[in-house]
């Protein structure tokens, strides 16, 4: 559990610092000049705010959200699933595409669904809230 928490925190920092998932990006000094825009976050689906204007409470919520998202299982598309198309980008899955599987068993491209889950923690297909289902499934995978 301690390990788990630590990995969550380090991910938070890398994502808040630019969302490019490269660990230690902040230690490389100021961002390159072409990176003019601050990363933008969505405290709710219709609110759009640059990362440096978020309240502390929102930062904590975002960090928690990133942590939760990372508990959701990921996989590589191998054609074994029923869904053939990612409904977010509406393109067909290609063998080898990184995917994420939600508790309701709907699958999406990893990048597509992570971007969505940062705005709304529900499945875009069935509107099932991810929180509750996630906690139950997390519990059951822990005990088995």
């Amino acid at each position: 559990m301690g390990n788990c928490l630590r990995s969550v925190t380090s991910d938070d920092i890398s994502l808040l610092n630019g969302g490019d998932r490269s660990p230690g990006a902040e230690s490389l000094g100021p961002p390159p000049p072409y990176q003019e825009e601050a990363p933008v976050y969505y405290p709710s689906p219709n609110q759009r705010r640059p990362a440096n204007q978020l309240t502390e409470e929102e930062q904590v919520r975002i960090a928690q959200r990133i942590g939760l998202i990372q508990h959701l299982p990921t996989s590589i598309y191998d054609g074994s699933k029923k869904n053939r198309e990612c409904v977010i980008c509406m393109s067909e899955f290609v063998y080898g595409d990184p995917i994420r599987i939600l508790p309701c068993m709907h699958i999406y491209h990893l990048d597509c669904i992570d971007d969505w889950l940062m705005r709304s923690f529900t499945c875009p297909s069935c509107m099932e809230p991810v929180d509750a289902a996630l906690l139950t499934s997390y519990d059951s995978t822990n005990t088995t």
Binding site: P45, N46, V87, C112, W116, T122
Partner: peptide, 8 residues
Amino acid sequence: LKDQWAAA
């Protein structure tokens, strides 16, 4: 068209 929008 507001907070109940879903990507699907």
